[in-house]
Nucleic acid binder design. Structure first.
Lengths: 243, 243
DNA sequence: AAGTGGTCTAGACCACTAT
DNA sequence: TAGTGGTCTAGACCACTTC
């Protein structure tokens, strides 16, 4: 039942992903590209596109002249750094069923650093939403989002506090998120943040300081996030790349 | 002067990268794919392959129906996390000309954690090489590599202490590095590490705990690295990805 | 020698954006 | 409506691994 939309490539990719998850390829060997193409009724190019994406995600690896294989180590990677879009998904990928608690919500004058990165005049108001992501009442992630108030179309957004930020922006502004530029910053948890995360003062932690841009490369949100390292650890695959 | 090897795709990619760096596309607009293909004398597929890689690297972005554009924000990203292969390159990309100092070098029995991840019996010897990467006598990165002694073919490797680890492995073992699986771990710099990096005790820092695998997915090296956050900060682009 | 993945072509049609 | 990027095809040849 192969149709367009989702694209053939996406369907092939999903098909292979499922078969990998179900351990269908017992010796870890994935059939040759030509065979996959014939079986699935698509061109080899389409199969190769799907395989390339799976390879980039670390799910498989390819050896020229030899074959394509399941990457057992890659399966450990639950949250690929570059693919994080909402923290709900991150926690779900880790096997949690997260809940969200809004800690604060309100408009305040932008601090200088935020005004700078969001292209605002000093003191222009931003809507600040602080959220805590928990699993079984155990806090895992704290996020602080700052959205220029002028971008928000309606004032009736209070009920949507707990929706993921990218969704919130789609609903209440005209600026859909296209990508984040993130900095990884090591810190020691302190004060309110440590309290909220239920971690001892001074615990080393990762934080993300990131700017979300829309399709026109204009900043729409600044986010700062803090993570409980003992509950959520980031992994990635690093490869040699060509110049 | 377009030839094979490096591949056409790589040549097209390099060509575009150079022209982006030289600011040839003044309005940030990259010519249409069909035009690039005609100008460079390659097929549109080849051009698209090159553009796709540049897009993944954050150098450009594409808008269906509209065009392909230089990503000004992506140009800030000097060290893409997934592309780190040697720290020499990382520092060079940051505009430094790094020097390397070997702090220690010698075989010791593997600690339990290292033995575990390297598939060794407890107490089997590993060659430990500690290196410090500096810029103007200012330490930036400290790495500790552990290589099973049994993998090393010759005993005459002392002069090669300062070569990058991936090169060291190529020369002195039969196991070339294929990829790393990395964990990002927040820590507080302490004791010897803080001393070596010239940072105050307790400074928050990022560390990488990683395992290097060869082409057969067998572990060949365990590396732990520590970074001076004030001198080297990691950035990445995050995008929404399809299932 | 046979079989695998890697590169490349030429062309078709679709989806979306601009005007 | 014209022009752009997105998807897909069918086929060719190359580079490498395996036997």
């Amino acid at each position: 039942m192969i149709t367009r939309n989702p694209s053939l490539t996406d369907q092939v990719k999903a098909n292979l992903k499922r078969r990998i998850a179900e351990d269908e390829f017992e010796d870890g060997r994935i059939p040759p590209e030509t065979e996959l193409a014939a079986d699935l009724g698509v061109s080899r190019t389409t199969v190769r596109d799907a395989l390339t994406r799976l390879e980039n995600e670390g799910a498989i690896y390819r050896r020229q002249g030899s074959g394509t294989f399941v990457n057992e180590h890659g399966l450990q990677i639950k949250s690929r750094l570059e693919e994080i879009w909402s923290y709900e998904d991150v926690l779900e990928d880790h096997g949690y069923t997260p809940s969200v608690r809004v800690l604060s919500h309100g408009a305040v004058p932008a601090d200088p650093a935020t005004a700078e990165v969001l292209d605002l005049d000093a003191g222009e108001p931003v809507l600040v939403i602080e959220k805590l992501f928990l699993e079984d009442d155990e806090p895992v992630i704290l996020t602080r989002n700052r959205i220029p108030t002028q971008l928000i179309n309606d004032l009736d957004h209070r009920g949507d506090d707990t929706t993921p930020i990218y969704e919130f922006l789609e609903i209440h502004t005209d600026r859909a998120l296209a990508y984040y530029l993130s900095e990884i910053v090591p810190i020691a948890l302190d004060g309110e943040v440590a309290d909220a995360l239920g971690a001892p003062e001074g615990t080393p932690a990762i934080s993300f300081d990131e700017i979300g841009y829309d399709q026109n490369n204009e900043p729409v949100v600044r986010a700062t996030s803090y993570f409980r390292d003992d509950l959520l650890r980031f992994r990635l695959i690093r490869r040699k790349t060509r110049p």
